[in-house]
């Protein structure tokens, strides 16, 4: 009886992301170039984590793997109790669509689409009806604080901060479990950068899991836990007292 309960608790407490000794090795001809060299990591739902490290440390590669954009060469990687190494490409696409949202340094908006259409895109791939897509996109854009008159603007008619808001709205539209942000303030001035970070903190307060990749210490300070990556390995971890 006791054992059963213990098992149950263990099962319930299984972390959302569980990575065990994962490696990512690139092959340049005959030469092996390991970008990730045995990283183990556990992330619970609701955490706000910053991954920090100098350029070339492998932090972006780590984010790509955790975000199911790429598979590790070896190791164990579970996301929401699903074995990612065994998942098909289509399954990974479905996971990215359903459970993950991305925010990039260069915004990565579709240049020829309006803000609203950009935000709709993940919903399109989820097979939602046009009405549903528009409703959700408007909701999402309102949440990140973009003025309604800008909904029909194309990315080149928006400022950097506004573009990043659109990108965040897009990441939020399918109500993902986790959001990855790769240098989200890197292309912004300090003021817009701070506004974007405020949005992230707000999202975390609402219970959303966030992983922020950055090389700037002050950006990482927003998180609860900072993971330092160096040479493809975790160098150290620190907890931030809120």
């Amino acid at each position: 009886m006791e054992r059963c309960v213990w098992r149950l608790i263990k099962k319930m407490k299984k972390p959302f992301i569980q990575a065990n000794d994962i490696w990512k090795i690139y092959y340049m001809g005959e030469v092996e170039v390991p970008a990730i060299r045995g990283i183990s990591l556990e992330i619970e739902k609701g955490e706000f984590i910053a991954i920090i490290g100098p350029s070339g440390s492998g932090k972006s590669t780590l984010m790509h793997i955790l975000g199911c954009l790429d598979k590790p060469t070896k190791g164990l990687f579970y996301l929401d109790e699903e074995d990612i190494l065994k998942a098909s490409e289509n399954r990974l696409a479905a996971i990215r669509n359903d459970k993950i949202g991305f925010v990039f340094q260069q915004f990565n908006l579709l240049a020829r689409r309006s803000a609203l259409e950009n935000v709709e895109t993940p919903c399109l791939y989820a097979g939602k009806s046009r009405r549903e897509r528009i409703r959700r996109a408007r909701e999402s854009l309102a949440k990140v604080g973009l003025e309604e008159k800008r909904f029909s603007h194309h990315p080149n008619q928006l400022s950097g901060g506004q573009r990043q808001r659109v990108a965040i709205a897009r990441a939020l539209i399918n109500d993902p479990d986790i959001i990855f942000a790769d240098e989200p303030t890197g292309a912004l001035d300090t003021r817009s950068g701070d506004e974007i970070l405020e949005i992230f903190q707000q999202l975390n307060k609402e219970g959303r899991t966030l992983i922020l990749v950055t090389h700037e210490k002050y950006v990482a300070q927003c998180a609860q836990r900072i993971i330092h990556v160096k040479d493809g390995k975790i160098d150290s971890e620190e907890l931030i007292a809120q």
Binding site: E89, N90, A93, N108, Y125, A126, R170
Partner: peptide, 16 residues
């Protein structure tokens, strides 16, 4: 290419 990458990151399958 970049647009394709974005679409894939947002959950577009090969078929799409």
């Amino acid at each position: 290419t970049r647009e394709i990458g974005i679409r894939k990151a947002l959950g577009a399958k090969k078929k799409d």
